[in-house]
């Protein structure tokens, strides 16, 4: 799951200042790899997504064969690879300390008021639900266990949105604390005793050694220092994580989508007119 990098890399970057660069590149990955959680979402819906394409063959009979054929082509071209689509109601979740906070909204300013948000574990069992409250924001205490968490918001009148929080993004996920094998994460024992004379090994290990060494004489253990820095960085970086989570899940339509859609309408209209053109029509000679 791409989300892993989101949790792992920033924290793996703690020991050395140089580690920040890998951390940032790691952050970028989720936005490009949005297909992961969405793909599953598409499969989860009850019906194969080619169902709505059924109308078109019948429509080919007369009048708009081009439109029908084009719509069919469009559907069949998009449906199989379709990572399902975001919904008109959006929800996203992020770890915030020991809690998991969710935000539900229709548009950025338009929050889901008094909707119902449910938390499901990896097997789809509901393990908690609550009202979204007056501002659409709701925090759950982090549940025990592991695995992905899914948040489903029901905002009435058939509005439904969901968001999957990867296991690695859960609060206190082991990958964040111990599991990370990021570039800056050298073996603590080696950095403590190792003089690291070799230039080749100095890259990652030397950086963390610098960070740890000045702290150690002051009576602070390296582990404590790591914990403090980790906490601090987590606080600093959580808004970024939040923004990325929001960007990854599509968000509300922007100018690009609007202009693109109008372009589609104009293009299909032109196509239909072109294909319906009669050779003998006035003003047209073929």
């Amino acid at each position: 799951m791409r989300g892993n990098c989101l949790a792992r890399n920033p924290l793996a970057a703690v020991p050395g200042t140089r580690g920040a660069a890998p951390g940032l590149t790691g952050l970028r990955a989720p936005s490009s790899g949005a297909a992961g959680p969405r793909g599953r979402r598409g499969d989860a819906t009850g019906l194969p997504s080619n169902a709505p394409t059924a109308p078109t063959p019948g429509a080919v009979t007369l009048g708009g064969p081009a439109l029908a054929a084009f719509a069919l082509a469009l559907c069949s071209a998009i449906a199989p690879s379709a990572p399902a689509f975001a919904h008109a109601v959006y929800v996203f979740a992020y770890a915030n300390g020991d809690e998991i906070c969710t935000e539900s909204y229709f548009t950025r300013k338009n929050r889901v008021v008094d909707g119902r948000i449910a938390m499901q574990d990896a097997s789809g069992t509901e393990i908690g639900s609550a009202s979204t409250g007056a501002d659409g924001n709701r925090c759950f205490p982090a549940p025990p266990g592991e695995g992905d968490l899914k948040f489903v918001v029901l905002a009435g009148e058939g509005h439904r949105g969901e968001f999957t929080l990867p296991a690695a993004d859960r609060p206190g996920a082991p990958s964040a604390a111990e599991g990370g094998a990021g570039p800056g994460r050298a073996d603590p024992a080696a950095t403590g005793s190792g003089p690291s004379p070799d230039g080749a090994a100095a890259d990652g290990a030397g950086a963390s050694g610098e960070a740890a060494s000045p702290g150690a004489p002051a009576g602070v253990s390296e582990e404590t220092l790591r914990a403090v820095v980790r906490e601090e960085l987590k606080a600093q970086i959580s808004p970024v994580v939040r923004a990325l989570a929001e960007a990854r899940d599509g968000g509300t339509p922007g100018l690009r989508e609007i202009v693109g859609g109008l372009g589609w309408v104009a293009g299909v209209c032109g196509l239909v007119l072109w294909l319906k053109r009669r050779p003998g029509a006035p003003g047209r000679k073929d």
């Binding site: 559907c75 998009i78 689509f85």
Partner: peptide
């Protein structure tokens, strides 16, 4: 239908199955 199709694809309003 065509408007909804585009909305479903580009905006995420509704969806293809619905």
């Amino acid at each position: 239908f065509f408007g909804l199709l585009l909305q479903g694809i580009l905006f995420g309003f509704g969806g293809l199955t619905t």
